[in-house]
Simulated scan of single mutants.
Amino acid sequence: MSSFARTLNFTSANEDGASELAALALTADDHVLCLTASGARPLDLLLGQPAQITAIDINPAQNELLRLKIAAYRALGDDALYAYLGLAPTRHRLDLHTQVSSHLAPASRAFWESRRRAIAGGIWHSGRWERVLRLGAAGTRMIRGRSIDRLFDAATLDAQASLWRDHFDDGVWHGAVRLLSQRWFWTHLIGEPGGAFLPPPAESEARLTRLFRRAASSIFFRDSDFAALLFRGRHTAGGALPLHLRPENLGRVRKHLDRLTIAEAGLADLAGTGLGPFTAFSLSDFGSYCSQPDYDACWRGILASARPGARYCERVFMNPVTPSACLAAPIVPDMVRSAALSRTDRAIIYDIRCGHLAVPA
């Protein structure tokens, strides 16, 4: 876990901020606790215009990435922002970085000075997860070829579902999913500590197969920034993007950057940090990295720092862990909304759990 907790593991976006905003229904009075990861969700949540967002991560590199993205928003215009991040081509990325650096604190400036190669290549696609997806997309392109373009160009959901069934949901796909469901693949090849908590391969394979079949008939893959990474290996300024990078939202995000603060902390430690209390929690898939005791400890921290009635949104990827019975009572799920958001979430690979926290005043 030590290497994973020090390097840039996620640098782009593979979640759907629209689901988070729908689940949390933010207001101008909210103080949101959000896990940092790539910084995409904290920036997406600014569009809900809460009073404050506190982004936390135990990995200082991920927090530095969010600081860099905030600085890029402040320093650059729209086209330059896309070019700097790596969403559009440019030969002047390091020159743009000079402008961005002027908006960084000295410690953050030094952090990125030692990573100029990642900056020059476009920080958006430089993470561990992004490299894995890029390799996978190259393999998919060799096998599926023009079927990918046809999938992204489908005129209707019925047509897309038919294309998925006839050209993707086959033995080759199932074999790839089966490989991805092996613990050794995640822990030894990718270096992902969450692989230690995967359920049996047959269970993981069945779940991922179900999720992609569901997505093929409920969302357009061309509108999914995760699908762009999975099948094409990268994001572009003219393609599907997370909410905070869509052209119509750039100005709104810039306007509210001061509402976002960053701290190094973990969910289990929230009660002792003084960062709360919080009225909303954007939790991503933290359970993917947790044993049952660690998962319960995280929920204790969440509950201890929550205001009565606080809303939460959690994502479930490969490890479907749930709170132990002794913690479950104040965690009140909204099963109808959770199911609806899971069905329409453009990140495809997650189930959504959302609801409210019935903690005492």
Rank of each mutant, 00 (worst) to 15 (best):
R146N: 15
I219T: 03
Q99W: 07
R144Q: 02
Y350F: 13
T7K: 15
V32Y: 00
V100H: 06
L157I: 03
F168V: 07
T236K: 06
D345V: 03
R150L: 09
E15H: 06
D29E: 15
E64S: 08
S204C: 10
A347S: 15
G274L: 07
G309V: 05
H188R: 15
H92N: 14
P293L: 01
A18V: 00
A72W: 06
Q182K: 13
D29H: 14
H31P: 03
A268W: 01
I56W: 04
I119Q: 05
D79M: 07
A304M: 08
A228V: 00
L85Y: 09
G266Y: 01
S126F: 04
D334I: 03
Y312A: 00
R213Y: 04
A80N: 10
Q52E: 10
I58V: 13
I348P: 05
S19R: 01
G127S: 08
L66E: 04
P323Y: 01
T36F: 00
E248K: 11
P330N: 10
R214K: 12
R116N: 03
A107W: 03
T344Q: 12
A196N: 14
P50M: 02
W112H: 03
L35Y: 09
G77V: 02
P200A: 15
F220W: 02
S181G: 15
P323D: 00
S284L: 08
D225P: 09
T7H: 13
L270G: 08
F286P: 06
G145W: 00
S162N: 12
L104G: 10
A75K: 07
I352E: 02
R67H: 09
A310H: 00
F221T: 07
A329D: 13
L85M: 09
G122N: 06
G86N: 05
A22S: 12
I119E: 05
P293A: 01
D169L: 05
L45V: 03
L250D: 06
E64V: 01
G136C: 07
L198G: 10
A340P: 02
L45F: 09
W186P: 04
P42H: 01
A306I: 10
R115P: 05
Q52G: 03
L151R: 04
A265V: 01
L283K: 01
R67W: 01
D158T: 14
L104W: 07
V177W: 02
A25R: 14
F111A: 00
E264D: 15
C354Q: 07
L283F: 04
S126N: 11
H244V: 03
L8I: 10
S114F: 07
S218W: 04
L327K: 08
L211T: 06
L47C: 12
